[in-house]
Amino acid sequence: MNWLLSIIYLVVFPGILFVLGFAFFAEWLDRKVYARVQRRVGPPFLQPLADFIKLSSKEDVVPEKADNAIFTAAPIISLAAILAAFLYVPVVTATALHVFEGDLIVALYLLTIPTLALFLGGWFSGNLFGQSGAMRVASLLFSYEVPFFLALLAPALMAGTWSMSGIVVYLYGNPLAFVVTIGAFFIAVISLQGKLERLPFDIPDAETEIVGGPMSEYSGRRLALFRLARDAEMVVGAGLIAAVFLGGPWCPFISLDPGYIAWAVGAAFFILKTLIVLGLLILMKSAVARIRVDQMVNVAYKYLIPLALAQMLVVVLVKYMGWF
């Protein structure tokens, strides 16, 4: 029966369906909280799903100048890469579906693919605004990927393993390790905001500046997929941070019996921690203006990267002194 469990794990929980459902929920939460901060009412609960269905049924236009194959492949590839990355995130117990030494690195690379897909989709859309947005995507790539990677190195160094499940297992044993890497946690959240291209870093698809950037020419099903991919990326990114920094399914009453209650509580705690990270992402965007490309590079290289490096130094010192 092990293969059946694996299939349920892959498809239903915590696999594809869970991520997609959570993605819709995250979008709703994002829009609702943003609206309420602005004293608006905000969308009803099923609005993101309704948007997805409606967009899917709309006419799907590929511009004449666009490269059809890449234009179509970009949203699919980005969604696929995000879903693949989620396989390495431990959700229910400390072990994810597939564990090997170095899966953190693989997940990080998989999470970079949507950005590249967005770049290609925008570049080959044949639209001036799409191309200019694609250039912004490409030039910003290193501004947030480098601090994101560096920030996630801190807990990996702490646990002494490149495996996400390994880090979670380490956090099971040493929950206080979070306190040491708290700086890296905030850097990771800020870089994730940049990775997701949300305010104040929504430079590539700035609506009032370059219309919608790489997404300008997308419509119908492809746009629906791209939007879903972005929501899923938000969930997976937040889940990854929740797992690596906050210990994923770790909770104070870990030794529950029987096993399935422990699983349920573990999953609930994972979702709770992901929601905390999501909440930070949402609040971050509610009181800021969009910054410029050059300012974004400044923020990344002047503040985020040096801070991430300092955090790694702290981790090394703590490990050397033998406090953890």
Partner: peptide, 10 residues
């Protein structure tokens, strides 16, 4: 402004 989340919308 974060308190507005729990207040009645305008």
């Amino acid at each position: 402004i974060v308190g507005f989340v729990f207040k009645k919308p305008a």
